[in-house]
């Protein structure tokens, strides 16, 4: 059975200049797999992640024929029940750990709080669980990190802490929205492979939202390519290079490459038809 089913999802914003549609009727389903959503800024990829968790604020509006988590319809849930879904069954890791961690609480308290919010357990057990989790995200000195404040840890470590915090309630699905864009290249892959390992061990579903085609093809099983609020192409990550859609091809070809130098980079010629089709 698939973990998540999304049918005809739409996100629109009422502005003074009329209705702006950020996501225009997309459908996909997620099993125990790693699904990548790729697109440029403004393609609606982040909105998709937020819409599933109902984190789109007014004036944004979310409509869908169906959003189902393990067969349960999420749209019929009230805000209270939805709060239980967030974190416990679907977690989200955002782009910049600096803005996602509370600056005046120690890392340990925050991880323990994340656990205790969703589990009836003693503080002692929560602490043990937090330490385990920090070890799982390859933090060498978890006791010390537990007592640290967010500004005392590096960006890469901050993002690993975020992942620990998001995975501690044992969710079924992790949505990672540009989880490594704020990090240095050498740290990026380390963080991603840690996340990848944890997700696989637990048989979770992963939605990995990114603008980076290479990262997505490396760490996902399947990729959705979004353009102007629609999915223009779906393909196996391993066969991303065989993508057919001119937009995907254009994105791939516009990257400068060390191994294949070119005098000029290919420039994407946007075809208005892409925004309509799909």
């Amino acid at each position: 059975m698939s973990l998540l089913d999304v049918e005809n999802l739409r996100v629109s914003f009422d502005t003074s200049q009329g209705v702006v549609e950020a996501v225009r009727g997309i459908s996909f389903s997620l099993g125990q797999e790693r699904l990548g959503i790729v697109g440029e800024s403004g393609s609606g990829k982040s909105m998709t992640g937020r819409a599933i968790l109902r984190l789109v604020r007014p004036p944004g509006r979310v409509e869908a024929d169906r959003i189902a988590l393990e067969g349960q319809d999420l749209q019929s849930l009230g805000e209270r029940q939805m709060r239980k879904v967030r974190g416990r069954r679907i977690s989200m890791v955002m782009q910049d750990p600096k803005f996602s961690l509370n600056p005046v609480m120690t890392v340990g308290e925050q991880i323990m709080e994340a656990y205790l919010l969703h589990a009836r357990d003693s503080r002692r057990a929560a602490r043990r669980k937090a330490l385990e989790m920090l070890e799982a995200v390859a933090i060498r000195d978890p006791e010390r990190v537990m007592k640290a404040y967010p500004h005392e840890v590096s960006g890469g470590m901050g993002q690993r802490i975020m992942i620990a915090m998001m995975l501690i309630p044992d969710p079924r699905i992790l949505i990672a929205d540009e989880p490594t864009s704020a990090l240095d290249v050498s740290v990026q892959r380390k963080v991603l492979s840690i996340m990848d390992g944890l997700v696989r061990d637990r048989g979770m579903g992963l939605i990995f939202i990114s603008h980076d085609l290479n990262l997505v093809s490396e760490f996902c099983d399947r990729v959705l390519i979004m353009y102007a609020g629609r999915i223009v192409e779906t393909c196996d990550a391993a066969r991303l290079h065989e993508a057919r859609h001119p937009y995907t091809r254009g994105l791939l070809n516009s990257l400068p490459r060390l191994d294949a130098p070119r005098a000029r980079l290919e420039v994407l010629a946007r075809d208005p038809a892409w925004a309509e089709g799909g």
């Binding site: 892959r189 980076d212 991303l240 060390l258």
Partner: peptide
């Protein structure tokens, strides 16, 4: 290490040829 990180990123792109 830096070059390794960049080239593994280019893997898919290389395969595209």
């Amino acid at each position: 290490a830096l070059i390794a990180a960049s080239v593994s990123g280019g893997r898919t792109a290389r395969a595209a040829e």
